[in-house]
Amino acid sequence: MSAIITVENVGKKYRLRHQKTETYATLRDTIVRGAKNVFSFNKVDKPTVEEFWALKNVNFEINQGDRIGIIGRNGAGKSTLLKILSRVVHPTEGRITMEGKIASLLEVGTGFHPELSGRENIYLNGVILGMTRKEIQKKFDEIVAFSEIDKFLDTPVKRYSSGMFVRLAFSVAVHMEPDILIVDEVLAVGDAQFQKKSAAKMESISKDEGRTILFVSHNMPAMEKLCPTSIYLEHGTVKKIGKTEEIVNEYLIATNAQ
C-alpha cells in the first residue's frame, strides 16, 4: 500500500522580532524607521530578528486508513504541522504530497456566524470546509440528527448554548467525507456523552470507511483509544514514531521528570 501522505524534510521558520513594536507594523513605523536609518550612521532602531524554527526536518509517511496521533508539549510544533498539512501555512522548506481530499478541523465552527440560523450555518460551514452544496443537502438530516439540535435549527446561533454550538459545528465537520481528516484538539467538546459519541464516530469514519485521520490532543486516554500509532514531536522535530501506548508512556515520563 502506498503512502497517502508523504512529508519530506518539512520545516517552518518564523521570525521573532525583539523590539517593542506590535506584531503588525504600521506604515508610519516603517517609514519613520526607514528614515531614521537613512539619516543616522549607527542604525539605531534596527530591530533584532531572531529566527525560530517551529518545525525542522520533519519526515514521515502515512498510509491510507491509518489513525495517527500527534503528541508533544505545548510549542512542540503540533499545530504548525497540522496547519501546514491543511495548507493554511506555507512551509519554509520541504515537500508534502497528499492523495485525495483533505478536510481540516483546526477549530470547531470556523466561519460560523452568530446572526445566522443553525440551518444557514450548516451550509456556510460546510462549504468553508470544502463540501459542495449537494453533499450538504444529502447529509443534512444526518448532521442535524447527530448534533441533536433539530428543535433549534432556525434559531440564530447566537442564542445557542456553547454546548449546542459545539455539537452542531462538530457534526458538520465529521459528516464531510474527506480522504484525510485533520483534527486539532476538538474532541474535548460537549458533555461526556457527546464526547463518547464523537470519538466513536471518528473511529468508524476511519475503520469502516477507510479514511485517514491525523489527530492532536492532550487527552492521552482518548489518544490511546483512537490512534494505534503516534508521532512524538519535540522542539519542532520528530522524536519518535511508534505505538501510541509506548509513546504516551515516554511522553508522560518525560513530562513528569521536568
Binding site: 508534502i96 504530497t97 497528499m98 492523495e99
Partner: peptide, 12 residues
C-alpha cells in the same frame, strides 16, 4: 471520485 493529488512544496 478521482483522487486528487496535492503537492505542497516550499517556495512554490
Amino acid at each position: 471520485m478521482s483522487k486528487k493529488r496535492i503537492v505542497i512544496e516550499s517556495g512554490k
